[in-house]
């Protein structure tokens, strides 16, 4: 099973070889509310660590989704763009946002573990 890490901007990343899968956390979807629009990046796009990579909109507002890790996008999940509501139902499973080929494994290692992330959310309620 691949390891899963978390960012302070409420993205999750799982790593399989040098391919990372990125999505937003369940906690993020609970803060956002009903998701009604998603824009995912196209393959080939270069993204920086903490750079804007995707967009998620709820009925209330639009938010950027950042890549917690730098690399080159290999795939955007078109199925969530077609069915944005699925992000609310399965944010940390089938409703991932994009996959990218990473450059620096150190960036992945420096992200938070599940326990660290849960603690971070508790300490930073919003």
């Amino acid at each position: 099973m691949s390891e899963k890490k978390f960012s302070k901007k409420h993205e999750w990343v799982s790593l399989d070889g040098d391919i990372a899968t990125v999505g937003i956390t369940k906690h993020a979807t609970e803060m956002l509310g009903d998701i009604v629009f998603v824009e995912v990046p196209d393959a080939g796009k270069a993204v920086e660590k903490e750079g804007q990579a995707a967009v998620v909109e709820s009925t209330k507002a639009a938010s950027d989704v950042y890549s917690p890790i730098s690399g080159e996008i290999t795939e955007g999940n078109k199925s969530i763009a077609d069915d944005p509501g699925s992000v609310n139902t399965d944010p940390e499973g089938a409703s991932w946002f994009f996959k990218l080929k990473i450059k620096n494994k150190g960036e992945f290692d420096s992200l938070m573990s599940k326990d660290e992330y849960d603690k971070f959310c508790k300490e930073n309620p919003s």
Partner: peptide
């Protein structure tokens, strides 16, 4: 702004 059910 909303309750438990959410806006939709």
């Amino acid at each position: 702004i909303q309750y438990k059910d959410g806006i939709v």
